[in-house]
Simulated scan of single mutants.
Amino acid sequence: MSAGHGGITPEDLQKAKELLGTVTQVFEQRVVGQEALRTALVSSLLAGGHILLESVPGLAKTTAAETLAASVSGTFHRIQCTPDLMPNDIVGTQIYNYGTGSFTTQLGPVHANLVLLDEVNRSSAKTQSAMLEAMQERQTSIGGVEYPLPDPFMVLATQNPIEEEGTYVLPEAQMDRFLMKEVLTYPGAVHEVEILERVSSGRQSAPLTVPPISLDDVRFLQGLVDDVYVDTSIKRYIVDVINTSRFSGPRPVQGLSNHVRVGASPRGSIALMRVAQSLAIQAGRGFVIPDDIKAIRYAVLRHRIVRTFDALANNVQPEQLIDAIFDAVPTP
């Protein structure tokens, strides 16, 4: 069955519902609230992409990544990015054995199902490029030998927006390689009280009580996402949205060029479709609807629209521009 051509049975959808319900239960044992974060992480995993998380410290980014790995029985490695981190520290290296007179290969921490790249903007451009190459190629090359990365493989990169001193900001071309960018906000008062209750009672660090799903189950879910039906009218809608961000489309937004320097690339079109397919599976559907596209518009497009200097100076947020673009495009 080719991607996007349907063929999903009610039994498949029921199995997917049960598996995703298990992931949700595991997630809720460790992370309070943050439903949008859970949806974004699961959507990125099912769509086979990588995600960039942005927030101030202490909003459960690391906990969420560890919990997602635990919920799918996947291996997990955390890489703390620093200015002196080298590509070999991530990818791996060859070590000379004086006893045997030969080299042995030591694989780096990128060889895991889920990799947390903490504070990615603190590592040098060379190290960032090495990681992004591994993300794209799904393999590493050490000493001329290629080593495939595990399947499934997903990178969760984080960055702190309040400390820019001494950081290496990701270029727009590299940001575009992340399927989604999720911006986390502070929890509400009710959720923060629940966090304190869990910490004081020991529930926050208690062993997980829900059995996780398997990596084979993840691959089954990813296969379902490939088979979600996307109608031609939905694809046309996606293309119209992306073209509108480039100052064309069926109804160009007047004055958009004053705030947008570069619109979304075709990779943005693909991301909108793939994440919408993932959302459809999570909603128990075998087809994409326009509301799926609208629901993920910020996470998919906020890092793909490059703002002008005037927009930055006037603090025009990407979400405002995305809303203007979607308002201009007729919904099918």
Rank of each mutant, 00 (worst) to 15 (best):
V239T: 15
L68D: 04
Q320S: 09
A60G: 11
T93W: 12
M273N: 10
A125N: 09
N97Q: 14
I213S: 06
F309I: 13
T104Y: 03
R307I: 00
P332K: 02
K235C: 02
Y229Q: 10
V262H: 10
A69L: 07
S2N: 13
E197R: 14
A134L: 11
D292S: 05
Q25L: 10
I79L: 08
T22H: 05
V23R: 00
G74E: 03
Q106V: 12
P318S: 09
E163A: 00
S214L: 13
G166M: 00
I213F: 11
R138K: 14
G48P: 11
I270C: 00
H111M: 10
E319S: 05
G202H: 09
F247I: 01
M86V: 08
R219Q: 15
P332I: 01
P148E: 08
M180E: 12
V239N: 02
G188I: 07
H50N: 13
A36P: 04
L256R: 11
G166D: 00
P318K: 09
D217K: 06
N97D: 15
L149I: 12
T244H: 12
N97C: 03
V91Q: 06
L107P: 03
A324V: 00
E18I: 01
V169S: 13
L170F: 10
D226L: 11
G108C: 07
V329K: 03
